Amino acid sequence: MIVVGGGVVGLTTAVVLAEGGRRVRVWTREPVERTTSAVAGALWWPYRIEPERLVGDWALTSLVVYEELARRPERTGVRMVDGVHLGIRPADLGPWAARVPELRATDDGDGVRARLPLVDMPVHLVWLRERLTAAGGVVEERTVADLAAVPAAVVVNCTGLGARALVPDPAVRPVRGQLVVVENPGITTWFTSVDDPAGDSAYFFPQPGGLILGGTARPDEWSLEPDPRIAEEIVARCAAVRPEIAGARVLGHRVGLRPTRPAVRLEHGTLPGGRTLVHNYGHGGAGVTVAWGCAREAAGLADT
């Protein structure tokens, strides 16, 4: 069995398959540390992902796993952190929200408070790779141009934005996100605000390597080069919430392309010769949030 794609969705799917007794290889175009997943801010939250009727269960399945992994944050990269989503009310959320421990309205009613998983992605991706290896799996750097040419009885397609050309699936589109990493001036909680019509927002996540500031959500933009003007605007929006951010030393810039789709594609298909193909892509800005739920469903499809 070969899983194509070495981001958080691909690695998590491979772990579930390998720990279920399957012999698994992951083919990834780039090292896991350089995938789109590696630059994610990575707060657990169903963000820019559909369909809503399925996302809740996938997300809650993943939440249970992350709560367990948070007992070993140095090893797994997962911590449980308090914070506020401004501009959201509990009534705006789906049924899944009632099952999130400690999620409640803020005192002024302008947002929700919650204690949620915050994932240090560079650490977490390496941990996933090591967990896969411990289960007998292998990660190989390979470029795939044709899913039908992958030499396996079961192929699991977790290529994210790459599915646009590989499947091909024109419904997969990039939504460009830009982040700024600054020296943390002592902030210990996360914060997000809802997007404005332009797709820009203010959010910050305290990670071990610095405070991650965001962000942007620009559809159909492909550039991976940080825009200095956008970076300045991100810092200014975050500093309007926490003024101490304004003087924080900038440590770096990140850009990632979220693989959005009208709905996640998680389904069974076939390849020439009657071989099994499982699609698991199109998770938008919530790949981390639903990774374990989608992985378990994909593993079930691989056995049908």
Score class of each variant (00 low, 15 high):
residue 51 P to H: 03
residue 51 P to A: 05
residue 51 P to I: 09
residue 52 E to C: 00
residue 52 E to W: 07
residue 53 R to A: 14
residue 53 R to W: 14
residue 53 R to G: 12
residue 54 L to I: 02
residue 55 V to N: 04
residue 56 G to Q: 10
residue 58 W to A: 05
residue 58 W to Y: 15
residue 58 W to H: 15
residue 60 L to D: 02
residue 60 L to H: 04
residue 60 L to K: 03
residue 61 T to M: 03
residue 61 T to L: 01
residue 62 S to C: 03
residue 63 L to P: 05
residue 63 L to R: 05
residue 64 V to W: 10
residue 64 V to P: 04
residue 66 Y to G: 06
residue 66 Y to A: 03
residue 67 E to K: 13
residue 68 E to M: 01
residue 68 E to W: 04
residue 68 E to C: 02
residue 68 E to R: 15
residue 68 E to Y: 02
residue 69 L to N: 08
residue 70 A to C: 04
residue 70 A to W: 03
residue 70 A to Y: 06
residue 71 R to E: 14
residue 72 R to N: 12
residue 76 T to G: 13
residue 76 T to R: 08
residue 77 G to Q: 01
residue 77 G to E: 00
residue 78 V to Y: 02
residue 78 V to H: 06
residue 79 R to D: 05
residue 79 R to I: 07
residue 79 R to S: 15
residue 81 V to M: 14
residue 81 V to F: 10
residue 82 D to W: 14
residue 82 D to C: 08
residue 82 D to T: 10
residue 82 D to I: 00
residue 82 D to F: 06
residue 83 G to M: 11
residue 84 V to H: 08
residue 86 L to S: 11
residue 86 L to N: 04
residue 87 G to R: 11
residue 87 G to L: 12
residue 87 G to M: 09
residue 88 I to K: 07
residue 89 R to V: 01
residue 89 R to N: 04
residue 90 P to G: 09
residue 91 A to L: 13
residue 91 A to T: 10
residue 92 D to K: 04
residue 93 L to K: 05
residue 93 L to C: 11
residue 93 L to A: 07
residue 93 L to H: 05
residue 94 G to R: 09
residue 95 P to C: 11
residue 97 A to L: 03
residue 98 A to T: 14
residue 98 A to C: 07
residue 98 A to H: 14
residue 98 A to V: 09
residue 99 R to L: 14
residue 99 R to E: 07
residue 101 P to N: 08
residue 102 E to I: 05
residue 102 E to V: 08
residue 102 E to R: 15
residue 102 E to C: 11
residue 103 L to Y: 10
residue 103 L to W: 12
residue 103 L to E: 13
residue 104 R to W: 05
residue 106 T to Q: 06
residue 107 D to S: 15
residue 107 D to P: 08
residue 108 D to Q: 07
residue 112 V to D: 00
residue 112 V to G: 01
residue 112 V to W: 00
residue 113 R to P: 01
residue 114 A to F: 09
residue 114 A to Y: 06
residue 114 A to V: 07
residue 114 A to D: 12
residue 114 A to W: 08
residue 114 A to L: 15
residue 114 A to G: 13
residue 115 R to C: 11
residue 115 R to W: 00
residue 115 R to M: 00
residue 115 R to D: 02
residue 115 R to Q: 04
residue 116 L to R: 04
residue 116 L to H: 02
residue 116 L to D: 07
residue 118 L to H: 10
residue 118 L to N: 03
residue 121 M to H: 09
residue 121 M to A: 11
residue 121 M to Y: 09
residue 123 V to P: 05
residue 124 H to G: 09
residue 125 L to D: 01
residue 126 V to L: 13
residue 127 W to K: 00
residue 127 W to A: 09
